[in-house]
């Protein structure tokens, strides 16, 4: 029950099939990494799980803790416990981080319930300290004029505040220098625990030195072609993806 299950998922964007029969199960408490070359469909998988309107599921199923995820609107998915950390987070001009997060938390309360301001700010400041973010950040417009590192920290801050059951981190390491990467990784690691399942989407093995996964999967041409433990990441780093291509080719040929 307590897992995110993807069964034979097919996804098209503008009539082109990008994800072609993907199977994966992410349990709560575990970190799964998906690696793969550019164009393998990794980011499409993240977007479609989030419910982006441009991505069309042509067949397959996605279940989150027993709930049919594909029947839910994007905002419902979030409130039910899914979190998507964007590779390229949007700017929301004129809306401060404090107001943005307050609206997101308010949406999780019942009708007539009001968010308690003191508790909210106490929690916000605590999570910001964790991510080494200055308090003045709360007054800045969401992602507007943020550096790459600030944007990614802001994504993890939101995850920390919204306490999802499943976090999908799409290329969270892209555009980060080593110091920023360490801070972001520390933030993610601090959130790890039995209640949270993480799907880490990345192109590079580097991130996995800091967020050590329980499982590593290789995605190519829209499906998982190879799965293994964390050592698989090192193998990929050493040998590149071509080796997997050959092996996957053999598998496909069998």
């Amino acid at each position: 029950m307590n897992s995110l299950i993807i069964k034979d998922l097919h996804v098209s964007v503008a009539e082109r099939e990008i994800v072609r029969g993907l199977d994966l199960e992410v349990e709560r408490g575990k970190v799964h990494a998906i690696m793969g070359p550019n164009g393998s469909g990794k980011s499409t998988l993240a977007k479609v799980l989030g419910g982006h309107p441009d991505y069309r599921v042509t067949s397959g199923e996605v279940w989150m803790d027993g709930v049919n995820l594909l029947e839910l609107e994007p905002d419902e998915r979030s409130r039910k416990g899914l979190f998507l950390a964007f590779q390229y987070p949007s700017e929301v001009p004129g809306v401060s981080i404090a107001n943005f997060l307050r609206a997101a938390l308010q949406a999780r309360l019942g009708e007539g319930e009001e968010l308690e301001a003191t508790d909210y700010y106490a929690k916000l400041y605590e999570k910001m300290a964790l991510l080494e973010m200055d308090r003045s950040f709360t007054a800045r417009s969401v992602n507007e004029n943020f550096s790459g590192g600030e944007k990614k920290r802001n994504e993890i801050l939101q995850m920390a505040m919204l306490e999802p059951s499943y976090g999908i981190l799409d290329e969270t390491d892209s555009g980060l220098d080593i110091d920023a990467l360490k801070i972001v990784a520390n933030g993610v690691n601090s959130l790890r625990g039995p209640e949270l399942g993480i799907l880490l989407i990345t192109h590079y093995q580097r991130l996995l030195n800091f967020i050590v996964p329980d499982y590593v999967h290789v995605m190519m041409q829209g499906r998982i072609v190879l799965s293994g433990g964390k050592e698989l990441a090192f193998e990929l780093e050493e040998k590149g993806y071509d080796w997997v291509k050959e092996e996957a080719g053999e598998l496909a040929a069998v």
Binding site: P74, D75, P93, G94, V95, F100, A103, A107, S141, L162
Partner: peptide, 24 residues
């Protein structure tokens, strides 16, 4: 979509974006 993905329902999301637009 970014706002929706944080659980903010469409009417509230539009209101927030609008307020932000005018806030400048």
């Amino acid at each position: 979509f970014y706002l929706l993905s944080r659980g903010i329902p469409p009417p509230a999301a539009k209101k927030l974006v609008t307020a932000g637009f005018l806030n400048e």
